[in-house]
Amino acid sequence: MFKLPEEMGLIAIAARQTQGKGRGGNVWLSPMGCALSTLHITIPLHSNLGQRIPFIQHLVSLAVVESVRTIPGYEEIDLRVKWPNDIYYSDLMKLGGVLVTSTLIETTFHILIGFGFNVNNSNPTICINDLITKFNKEEGTNLKSLTADCLIARTVTVLERLIDIFQEKGPNGVLPRYYKYWVHSGKQVRLYNEEGPLAWIVGIDDCGFLQVHEEGKGVESVHPDGNSFDMLKNLIIPKH
């Protein structure tokens, strides 16, 4: 990838994965019916996004959600983002995720963006086309099922636009769109353990880290590489 001409893009697409990588060395197994790809992009170090590289995973997660929810008629499909890098059905089930790795060569970041999300496989949890079927039954609509190749293409297109907006306007150019779809608005959490201090999720800071407000202590930032957010226990916990 380091030898590619600047004007040439690179993306690898898989129909299924048996040795995919997740966060923290986790193995990511993906059957047929998932949208699976790794995208290579370059970001100048001395740019808005180059100075805030953790934001890339948020932009990709947002691009996946908007790849569906910006299609006319599909705006209310309940696909959402979970900090820092997951795609969710409401706040109930995980549909996919994002893993970003970067290499800095002189003044250019070479970014490999791995993203995968379940489009058409009802196991082991739920898929995007299940959400569409559910929506059709509840609302009396007749929305068509979507395909993995269509959504990969749409995701990359939306991501390009989000990067352009971020480079021009910084975090404030994209955060309103991100908050529109994230699952954490107004959520109360415990810090560190189930008896830990109460805190409220505030938003994302200028570096892409989660901000929480602890009673009596003000707002603190939680780094995505050292912490995980446990939706089931409603905790923000250190990741060992």
Rank of each mutant, 00 (worst) to 15 (best):
I237W: 12
D86H: 12
N85T: 09
D205I: 01
E220L: 05
E106L: 06
F209E: 10
L210R: 05
G116C: 14
K233A: 14
I165M: 03
E168Y: 01
N48E: 12
P171R: 02
E194H: 11
L104Q: 09
V60N: 04
I152D: 09
V222C: 03
V119R: 10
I105N: 00
G33F: 14
N142V: 05
N48M: 12
V27E: 11
S37T: 10
W28S: 13
G116Q: 14
P171D: 04
K144P: 03
T147W: 05
G196C: 06
I53S: 02
V119A: 11
E66S: 03
T125E: 11
P72S: 13
S61E: 03
G114D: 12
K180Y: 11
Y181T: 04
Q167H: 06
H213W: 08
E66K: 10
L151Y: 12
V219A: 06
V65Y: 01
I87S: 11
L159G: 03
G226W: 01
S221G: 00
N120D: 15
Y179L: 13
H223G: 06
K137W: 00
I165F: 01
H110R: 10
G216H: 05
I77K: 09
C207T: 02
H223M: 06
T125R: 07
G97T: 11
T38R: 01
S90F: 04
P238S: 15
Y88T: 13
N48Q: 15
V60R: 07
K21R: 15
G208T: 04
K3N: 12
E215V: 07
S61W: 02
S145Y: 07
V100R: 04
I201K: 04
G203M: 12
N120V: 09
G73K: 14
R177A: 09
M8V: 14
L4N: 08
V158N: 08
N193Q: 10
V212S: 00
L210T: 05
I41V: 15
G218N: 06
L104A: 12
P224R: 02
W200E: 08
V158I: 13
L232K: 15
C150G: 07
D130G: 04
H110W: 08
M93K: 15
L146R: 12
K169N: 13
F109N: 13
P171T: 03
R190P: 01
K187E: 08
P197A: 13
N48G: 13
R69D: 03
P44N: 01
V158A: 03
L36V: 15
T70R: 13
Q211T: 04
H58P: 02
H223K: 13
F115A: 09
Y179G: 11
C34A: 15
W83I: 05
K94T: 08
S228L: 14
G73P: 02
V222D: 01
L29M: 13
F229E: 03
K134F: 10
